[in-house]
C-alpha cells in the first residue's frame, strides 16, 4: 500500500482495467522534412513570443489611455430620434440589409440566405477546395471568391459609416458619447462634480403653474412643436427641455431667444405673430417660462 512503502519507492497505480495503458505519448512533430533551423518552443521561442506580447500590450494600453471607452446616456426606449448603429464589425451586414432585394419582402435574402451561404461556404472550404495546391495564386477560384467578398465587406462597411456620418451632419446630431464626454470635461473644468445621468436617479422637474395664461399661449405658439406640450424637449436631438429653464434664464433672456433664436433654433418671433399671437401674448409666454424653476 502507498502509505507503508519504503522511502524513494515509486508508487504505481493499477488504474481501471478498462482503460488501456497509454505507452505512447503525443509525438513531437518531426520538422526534419522542412528546411532550416527549428528551435525549441520552450524557452527560446516562447521568450520571443513573450516580447511580442509585451509590445502588443503596451500598444493596447496606449490606445486605452488615449481613447477611453465611450458611454452615452442611459437607454431610453421612448427615444425615437436615436440612430441605431451596431458595432463596426457588423456594419457590413447592417448596410447589406438596406438594399432593395435584401430588405422588406426580401429581407430573408439579406439576413439568412446570403450571409448564411457565405458563412457555410467559408466553414466548409476545406471540403470544397479539394486540390492539394496551397498557394493562393494556384487556386484562383477560391482566392478570387474570398477577395471579392472582402472587397464587398469593405465597401459595405465604409458606405454604412459614411451614411451614418452624413445623417449625423444632416440632422445636426452629436453622438451621445461625445456629448457626454464634453459635458464631463466642462463640469471638470468648472470644478463641479461630474453629472451622472442615470435612468433611476433622474431628477424629475415639475411644470410650474400649468394654469397660467402663458401656458395656454405656449400651446398655441411654435414652441410646442419642438419643446413639446410637457416642456420635455428632445434631448437626443439637442432640443433642451424647458422644465426648470427659469433657473438659468430670465424673462428677458427668453424674450431674446424667441426674437433671435439660439444655437440651432431659428428666430420664432415672426412666425408666432403670423400665427395670430400678439406682443402681449409673447410677453405672457416668456413670463410663464421664466417661472419654470426646479425649486
Amino acid at each position: 500500500m502507498a502509505h507503508d512503502r519504503k522511502p524513494g519507492e515509486k508508487v504505481v497505480f493499477v488504474g481501471d482495467s478498462r482503460v488501456r495503458l497509454k505507452t505512447e505519448r503525443l509525438k513531437q512533430p518531426d520538422y526534419s522534412a522542412y528546411p532550416g533551423k527549428s528551435e525549441a518552443f520552450i524557452p527560446n521561442f516562447l521568450l520571443k513570443e513573450w516580447m511580442v506580447g509585451v509590445v502588443v500590450l503596451v500598444g493596447i494600453l496606449a490606445l486605452v489611455m488615449s481613447e477611453p471607452a465611450p458611454l452615452g446616456y442611459p437607454a431610453d426606449p421612448t427615444n425615437t430620434a436615436f440612430i441605431p448603429m451596431p458595432d463596426w464589425y457588423f456594419l457590413f451586414l447592417y448596410q447589406f440589409l438596406k438594399y432593395p432585394y435584401t430588405s422588406d419582402h426580401y429581407v430573408v435574402f439579406g439576413t439568412v440566405l446570403v450571409p448564411g451561404l457565405a458563412f457555410l461556404g467559408l466553414m466548409l472550404v476545406p471540403f470544397l477546395d479539394l486540390s492539394p495546391e496551397r498557394r493562393f495564386y494556384r487556386r484562383p477560384v477560391t482566392s478570387a471568391l474570398m477577395i471579392v467578398t472582402l472587397l464587398a465587406m469593405g465597401y459595405l462597411t465604409y458606405t454604412s459609416w459614411h451614411h451614418y456620418k452624413e445623417e449625423l451632419k444632416e440632422k445636426n446630431i452629436i453622438p451621445e458619447d461625445v456629448k457626454r464626454e464634453e459635458e464631463l470635461r466642462a463640469a471638470k473644468g468648472a470644478g463641479k462634480a461630474a453629472p451622472s445621468p442615470s435612468a433611476g436617479a433622474a431628477k424629475k422637474v415639475a411644470m410650474v403653474a400649468p394654469d397660467d395664461p402663458g401656458a395656454a399661449v405656449f400651446k398655441k405658439a411654435t414652441c410646442v412643436a419642438c419643446h413639446g406640450g410637457e416642456l420635455k424637449g428632445m434631448p437626443s436631438s439637442g432640443i433642451p427641455a424647458l422644465l426648470g429653464i427659469g433657473d438659468t434664464l430670465s424673462k428677458d433672456d427668453i424674450l431674446g431667444i424667441i426674437k433671435n433664436g439660439k444655437g440651432n433654433m431659428p428666430a420664432q418671433y415672426k412666425d408666432n405673430i403670423g400665427k395670430g399671437l400678439t406682443d402681449a401674448d409673447i410677453d405672457k409666454l416668456a413670463n410663464w417660462l421664466s417661472m419654470q424653476k426646479s425649486k
Binding site: P70, L71, G72, Y73, P74, A75, D76, P77, N79, F82, I83, P84, M85, P86, D87, F90, L93, Y94, L97, V107, V108, T111, V112, E176, D177, A199, S236
Partner: peptide, 21 residues
C-alpha cells in the same frame, strides 16, 4: 452598458434574428 447605443443596436439585432424563417 445599457446606453442608447447599446439598446437600439440590440433592438435591431434581435429584429434581424427574428426575420429568420
Amino acid at each position: 452598458p445599457w446606453d442608447n447605443k447599446a439598446y437600439f443596436a440590440t433592438q435591431v439585432g434581435i429584429k434581424i434574428a427574428a426575420s429568420v424563417p
